Amino acid sequence: MQELDTFKLIERISALLRSEERKKYAAIGLQPVHGQVLEYLAKCNKYSNTHAAVAEYLGLTKGTVSQTIQILERKRYLDKTTDLLDGRVVHLSLTDTGKQLIDELKPLDIFKQAESKVSRQEFDTIGQALQTTLGVLQKVNESKSFGLCRSCHYFSVEQHHYQCGLTEQPLDREDTDKICRDHLPIPNSFIDQE
């Protein structure tokens, strides 16, 4: 069960970061895949800066990579150069504009903020570290937590039943183990520190 919880936390953190990444790239008329290609090209060597290597590294189809590279070339973020020894091979390299874009967009600001807060804390399990990281990312991003009902500020145990303080309604036992869009995390002094 612990492995599943850890996986779900990683999945949730990834979804939050992808959402933030989509917003950033959309603001400049690009998709996240464009940024992923640029980031790869910024760190690969001269033997790995080809269409095929990009497709293999990112797990994308050749068609997707080809279309992505065409867009990035039109926007002047990358250049193509034919290999001197094998004219069939085309090398890809970032232009100064492409390098500048990578510097401006990565890493995500919310992740840098979360990393700075979480790195000062010690954890007993990876699950605790991931849960804290997720909480910080959600707070910085001002997104809903969608946490488990029983971990909510509004959750309480009344005389012989569970109660939601927001709706003032009793809760079924099985609902307390499910996620809720109105979830309000219980204040965590570490997360709330500035």
Rank of each mutant, 00 (worst) to 15 (best):
M1D: 11
Q2S: 08
D5I: 13
F7C: 03
K8I: 14
E11H: 15
E11I: 10
E11S: 14
R18N: 09
R18G: 04
E21L: 06
A26N: 09
I28D: 04
G29E: 01
L30F: 05
P32T: 01
G35P: 04
E39Q: 01
N49L: 03
N49W: 05
H51T: 07
A53Q: 14
Y57S: 13
L58K: 02
L58A: 02
L60D: 04
T61K: 09
K62S: 15
G63Q: 08
Q67K: 12
T68P: 05
I69N: 03
I69D: 01
I69C: 10
Q70F: 07
K75W: 03
R76W: 11
L78K: 00
K80V: 12
T82E: 12
G87V: 14
R88S: 14
V89H: 08
V90S: 06
H91I: 05
L92K: 01
D96S: 15
G98M: 04
L101G: 01
I102P: 03
I102G: 04
D103W: 00
L105V: 14
D109K: 09
F111E: 10
K112F: 09
A114G: 01
K117W: 02
I126H: 13
Q128M: 14
L134F: 14
V136P: 00
K144F: 14
S145D: 13
S145M: 08
F146P: 02
F146D: 14
F146M: 12
R150W: 06
S151K: 05
C152Q: 06
Q159N: 11
H161Q: 11
Y162F: 15
Y162P: 02
G165R: 05
E168Y: 04
R173G: 06
D175Q: 15
D175W: 12
I179C: 10
P185M: 07
S189E: 13
F190K: 10
D192W: 02
Q193E: 07
Q193T: 03
